[in-house]
């Protein structure tokens, strides 16, 4: 089951759209994309989770790993289209302290780029 819907670049920001259960597998898939893009010098990532309405703590811990890596290279990660229950999990796990949740993709791209 593929966890990534698509990956595209907009104004130097890598937009990663996920799909389905955001668990270890989905986290690893996002980590793979981020690592590859970081090697190519990219440091701004926007994760669109419109089609991922269920997350588990392992998936979130992978996101934290990515954010740690991004902090080392002065990069940033942001999120859009979070389901309320996902946003709540992010808040509890503290992920939103290190990255922003935007109301729209346009706003996120503008702020990140």
């Amino acid at each position: 089951m593929s966890s990534l819907k698509n990956v595209e670049e907009k104004h130097d920001v890598i937009v990663v759209r996920t799909t389905g259960y955001f668990n270890n597998e989905a986290g690893d898939a996002v980590l793979g994309v981020c690592n590859e893009k970081m090697e190519n010098g990219k440091s701004k990532f926007l994760i669109d989770m419109e089609d991922s309405t269920v997350v588990n703590s392992i998936g979130v811990s992978v996101l934290i790993e990515i954010i740690e890596q991004l902090q080392e290279i002065d990069g940033a990660m942001a999120f859009i289209n979070l389901a309320p229950i996902v946003e709540k999990t992010f808040n509890i796990m503290g992920i939103t302290k290190y990255c922003t949740v935007y109301a729209s993709e346009d706003e996120a791209i503008e702020k990140l780029s």
């Binding site: 259960y21 668990n23 309405t53 588990n56």
Partner: peptide, 12 residues
């Protein structure tokens, strides 16, 4: 199912 999978970190 979704909530319990999420809370117990089960894959399915």
């Amino acid at each position: 199912l979704t909530i319990s999978s999420s809370i117990l970190n089960s894959s399915k």
